[in-house]
Amino acid sequence: MFEARLVQGSLMKKFMEAIKDLVKEANWDCTGTGISLQAMDTSHVSLVSLLLRSDGFDPYRCDRNISLGINMESMAKIMKCASNDDVITIRSEDHPDNVTFVFESPNQEKVCDYEMKLMDIDSEHLGIPDTEYDAIISMPASEFQRICRDLSNIGDSVKITCNKDGVQFSAQGDTGIGKIALKQNAVIDKEDGQVSIELNDPVSLTFALRYLTFFTKATPLASTVTLSVSAKNPVAVEYRVDDIGYIRYYLAPKIEE
């Protein structure tokens, strides 16, 4: 059997919000390591990869590796039925046709039990090679969300340029041009609120704001976001979630024809 109990159930709600607009359906792969998911959006332009490590649950039991084929919209609807302070347990049999979500209130006076049918999903798993990135930019997650929101008012795409002066986000549209420049903070330790840039090579790449905006749905999960950029490669946008794992998004760049 599979059983994973998450004391901070609100995390599962937030993970769900962070993927449901990007991915329609996906397999949640449950193993001894934890719960992982990898899926592309329907147009195969972006990819989301998440890991919830087993030690983030209490308890976690996985007798046999299983894949839970889940329709994200349906699961998101069920997750909305959980209160923010509920403890969430995910449970299924070894050869499951369905999965059960149990929501317990903190004082255990209320227990909700939702059973959801599973789907057979042909998952296309992509191997993501270790990449030497030209620039790794860490910044407050809320700042990145704000930049994506503001530049979406100007154009469809953002050009991310990183050099020794800092990082610049720029967008261009019918009405004009918008540019947002961030300098690296003087303090080097990576505390919340800091912008830090690890630069190997100056780099400039263009990405669709529509997808970056989908990625920023993960903002409630982490205070910091990391953008790893490399010439002619997808950008990796990572939100590390304390004590349990991460959600990473990859987005293919736009190129000039």
Partner: peptide, 14 residues
Amino acid sequence: LLIQQGMKSFYQFA
């Protein structure tokens, strides 16, 4: 003109 690339042109199936 900017062309959106797809994910599969970068990563192989595992």
